[in-house]
Design a protein around this nucleic acid. Structure first.
Length: 590
DNA sequence: CTAGGGTTAG
């Protein structure tokens, strides 16, 4: 009798651990109840794990029922259930279960329980609950459990508290690659991109312990993307290849995106071309990259190629495609894709806020402002501040004061107005020649204590040597040479037909007010002049700017590219401009 | 039961 029981027990366990489908598990459940084998703690554990964690699709309610029928659950049973809650749509239930451990018939918690409960708090965005758990971890003396502390770091990182996340990191007794990765994710989430690169560097230098893995490289690449750090990105790329991590699809996709966001489309194409397989994310990265760099035709070609390959687009793919059309002034094409999107041609997908944003931008650039406005009014979802801001940008380009005022009042209604919005309105007034309005708005801004961000441009001349400039910067050690260079450039450009047009653009309010200076120099002009000064002829000049570039500087760069025979690549707040032979890849100004 | 993870308007 006993012997036959034990055979069926083994048999049952192997049945349990190999099943993931609900009907299958229901049958097993029936057998367990009938034979009373459910009372065995071990079998119950296997069954619950399967049901709660491996069932596809998951059924948290079924798991909860099974768990609540257990009379004396062990800690493993409870932990499995807490983990299941952390993965479910009702993560707060997991925290409740954790809180009741040691009470009632439950055993006291161990580090694993705390770790799963923290995950519940992360998912349900329960800050107080997580802080309670941290206190309990401290009282329980679990502060030496590396796995638990790594999860705790992730908790602080989710609540944008990178300082406390770092403190926890310092306490971890045995840091492994995963703890480093969580730290890097934390920095990335909290905009501390330079810290990501610093740690990546350290991990390489430290040798064999905590060697970067695929995830580490992914994070480093994302940091390079947001910094525009092309050289560092290339180093990470080299590391990936040297360590045989290159085959991973997600890494290749991130590489394509990184090169695009650093303005190196040749390298982006190269990586994309060498990929063994490409999914919709790869195509989306490529299309968005081309869009951001002003290669609208190529983006459309890539989209069509993708359809030919039988890959279905996602929402982000259409976002990239539509933004490609707007950046390159391809109005008819853009509207055609938008119509196709609305008709449900792409998997019955409907336009989202991003899509509308692109189309508003597209119409705005095509001087179809009223059409853009009525499109916003006709949207089935509530327009967000960004949509209004896009429209405001279009008003600025055309000097449409009346609509501009309407739009800013919508932004004020939403309580979402920013300093940049007032600058846009200010420039709308000035390009329409409404100087009395300019003065009025300026004093209003002073009253409201609205401070604008000064324009700032950076240029990397030697490896890793970055020089930063602000408007009319006089702090650079070589300022005299730079200003002399600028004067010379201005003269050369004038001969070639360049006419300075500085009156309509008021980036920096403070400096505009202190009159008396004949000419002000936006930061990108200073950076470009410095680039010409210190790099050998023919070198590509790469400049990164924190704001949008203005008409005059755009024009200036076009002329520089022809007169000095240089490729000039300017990275805007939102995109790239590739200047060559007097032309720019974009169609932003005319 | 063993942490972390691809693309995304302006």
């Amino acid at each position: 009798m006993l012997k036959s029981m034990s055979i069926s027990e083994d048999h049952l366990i192997s049945l349990i651990t190999s099943s993931t489908a609900k009907p299958h598990l229901r049958q097993i459940h029936a057998v367990l109840l009938r034979t009373s084998l459910i009372k065995s703690s071990d079998i119950f554990h296997h069954f619950l794990s399967r049901l709660a964690l491996s069932l596809v699709p998951r059924d948290i309610n079924y798991s909860r029922r099974v768990f609540s029928h257990r009379t004396n659950p062990t800690l493993s049973h409870c932990n499995t259930m807490i983990r299941a809650f952390s993965l479910s749509e009702t993560p707060s239930q997991g925290f409740l279960l954790f809180s009741s451990l040691r009470r009632k018939t439950f055993p006291p918690a161990n580090p694993l329980s705390s770790s799963f409960a923290l995950k519940c708090c992360i998912k349900s965005r329960d800050l107080t609950g997580g802080l309670q758990i941290h206190g309990k971890i401290f009282r329980d003396g679990f502060l030496s459990d590396s796995l638990l502390l790594t999860t705790l770091m992730d908790f602080y990182s989710t609540f944008e508290n990178s300082n406390d996340a770092c403190k926890v990191f310092d306490e971890i007794p045995e840091r492994d690659t995963v703890s480093y990765n969580v730290l890097m994710s934390c920095f990335l989430r909290n905009k501390r991109t330079r810290d990501v690169l610093y740690h990546f560097d350290n991990m390489i230098k430290n040798g064999s312990v905590n060697k970067p893995d695929g995830v580490t490289c992914l994070r480093a690449l994302q940091a390079c993307s947001s910094l525009g750090a092309l050289d560092f990105g290339k180093q990470v790329h080299a590391f990936i290849d040297e360590n045989g991590l290159g085959g991973a699809l997600n890494l290749s996709n991130t590489l394509v995106s990184m090169y695009s966001r650093c303005g190196d489309m040749d390298k982006a194409y190269e990586v994309f071309g060498e990929m063994r397989e490409r999914n919709v994310v790869s195509w989306t990265a490529m299309i968005s990259g081309l869009a951001m760099n002003g290669f609208g035709r190529e983006a459309i070609e890539a989209f069509e190629e993708m359809l030919k390959c039988g890959v279905s687009p996602e929402e982000q793919t259409l976002t990239g495609l539509l933004s490609a059309c707007s950046h390159s002034g391809l109005v008819d094409e853009g509207m055609m894709f938008f119509e196709r999107l609305k008709s449900g041609e792409f998997n019955k997908m409907k336009p989202n806020l991003h899509h509308y944003g692109c189309v508003v931008d597209l119409l705005g650039r095509a001087r179809l402002l009223e059409k853009a406005y009525s499109l916003v009014e006709s949207m089935e979802m509530k327009p967000d501040s960004t949509i209004w801001r896009t429209l405001l940008g279009a008003c600025r380009v055309q000097g449409n004061v009346e609509l501009g005022e309407r739009v800013i009042s919508r932004l004020i209604e939403l309580k979402a107005e920013e300093a940049g919005d007032y600058v846009l309105l200010l420039n709308t007034y000035s390009s329409a020649g409404r100087w009395e309005k300019v003065t009025e708005l300026r004093s209003l801004m002073k009253e409201k204590r609205i401070h604008t961000k000064p324009g700032c441009s950076a240029i990397e001349v030697e490896q890793g040597k970055v020089h930063e400039f602000i408007v009319d910067d006089v702090s650079h050690p070589r300022k005299e040479e730079i200003y002399k260079m600028l004067e010379e450039i201005n003269q050369q450009l004038k001969i070639a037909g360049y006419v300075a047009e500085t009156a309509s653009e008021l980036h920096n309010i403070e400096s505009e007010e202190e009159k008396g200076r004949a000419l002000t120099y936006h930061s990108e002009k200073l950076a470009i002049a410095f680039g010409i000064l210190v790099t050998p002829p023919g070198t590509t000049i790469r400049v990164t700017k924190n704001l949008r570039t203005c008409v005059d500087c755009h024009n200036f760069a076009k002329f520089v590219s022809r007169v000095y025979d240089r490729v000039v690549i300017v990275r805007d707040r939102s995109r790239f401009h590739h200047f060559k032979d007097g032309f720019c890849s974009c169609n932003e100004f005319w």
